[in-house]
Write a protein that binds this DNA or RNA. Structure first.
Lengths: 243, 243
DNA sequence: CGATCGCTTGAGCTATCTCAACCGGCGTGG
DNA sequence: CCACGCCGGTTGAGATAGCTCAAGCGATCG
């Protein structure tokens, strides 16, 4: 279902709209190379500027902010297809850091090329703005989760979101999906303490709802998970045409 | 310091860069009119589509999401200069609602014009993406606030942010700035209960740090407020070139 | 004059936090 | 090859920030 296109640094187009040959040509010119990053690599750092932008091709990572107190707020999890560095592209500096969790393969291109994109390919520029608006939407949703839901609902919500994204990417095999993060990462994403996150995971495990261990998430009862996450089972599908 | 330009629907350019005559002309063509909305008007509604986009010229409002449980998450507060409806512009539908708190004057333009903007004015389109990236930054910051700070720090942070924005807009008169929201709005923005928000405000009042009543915020001790908000007093200024 | 709205305050409850200890697996260095 | 240290995960116990429920107050409005 998902077609990989390693020539396309900007995987912004809904999948059902194929690129024209001309577009593919442009994209190849736009792309400056591919990057193979080890697990634990810091791709971008808060406050600094990055001359490079990326699209994740393989592997997983996360975006986070470091607070004055030294704590971390994980902004979101990075999966294949995600665009990395829009802020660095248009603003003076990044407002969050980006780090790989597993080994990642990334499509690299130059931020200076961004302007030519806007000048010569308005439809692509439009897509880019669409990405940003989408990102804004997900952040707003996260805000609502942190603002109004209790521990177990937050964890459940995270699992549902990750499951749905993984499903769209074809990453699920036999009800299991890779989820290579640490419990601390999840805790930092959900605004919970590590201890409480751990106990919440235990509860979900014991209730036979979902099991996350050894880097894999196994959802045993999707229906009940959605219920806990306060999500409609037959909600309209997440619009996430990025790859 | 701030120059008002009611001909400019897209107040995206840093203030120190004046528009050329040609640009002003285009903007006037782009703009379809002005809207005078009463307090309590719903400008956009979650799930619906909006044929119109706005720039706030006067007055204040707020963006919010309604949760399954019926609760509200206030995404942010709208002040003059804010762009409203980017999501509606590029996505199928709005992901949050927008409501006026006071009477507002808005600059209106048509979402269909957005595409011509991208096609004919790449620099402006670039600005629009810059806006979106900026919005993303602020949402990320809010996320960190909800995820990691306690009640009093959240309120203090909100006050500092609002103060700084108001200052940039020249809305501060004798240490007082208009803040026409209800305590419930603030509570919904910060993920606190109304009762706890109220008690926190009382504490700030009694400690002589800040006083919010009758629609005005009076910051008595900015230095201490920043301390509570866990903000550096001499942090680099908030980059918010939007009017 | 009664009803509504926003604000205020008290009291008890609990979800979540912090502190602290322990465990198994893994990599490193002796 | 063993021993040690470190990392991620797990669990218990006590402390508390923040929640819910409930009541009251002044202002505004029809």
């Amino acid at each position: 279902m998902v077609t990989r296109c390693s020539n396309c640094p900007l995987r912004t187009r809904p999948l059902f709209v194929p690129m024209t040959d001309a577009e593919v040509g442009f994209m190849q010119k736009f792309k400056t190379g591919e990057l193979d990053a080890d697990a634990g690599t810091t791709l971008m750092i808060e406050g600094a500027n990055s001359p490079q932008l990326y699209t994740a091709l393989e592997g997983m990572g996360l975006r986070y902010k470091t607070l004055e107190s030294g704590e971390r707020q994980v902004i979101n999890f990075i999966l294949p297809g995600d665009f990395i560095g829009l802020q660095a592209g248009v603003m003076k500096e990044m407002q969050h850091s980006v780090e790989t969790t597993t080994r990642m393969k990334l499509c690299v291109f130059d931020r200076k090329a961004l302007w030519s994109l806007f000048r010569d390919h308005p439809d692509r520029a439009y897509d880019l703005t669409w990405i940003a608006a989408m990102e804004e939407h997900f952040l707003g949703e996260s805000l609502a989760i942190l603002g109004h839901m209790n521990g177990i609902a937050r964890v459940a919500r995270a699992f549902v979101r990750l499951h749905d994204r993984a499903e769209a990417l074809g990453l699920i095999e036999g009800a299991k999906m890779p989820l290579p993060y640490r419990q601390q990462d999840m805790a930092d994403a959900l605004g919970l303490s590590l201890v409480h996150t751990n106990k919440t995971l235990k509860k979900l495990r014991e209730d036979g709802v979902a099991m996350w261990r050894d880097g894999f998430l196994n959802i045993l009862d999707y229906r009940r998970l959605c219920k806990i996450a306060e999500l409609d089972l037959d909600r309209e599908p997440l619009v996430r045409p990025l790859l």
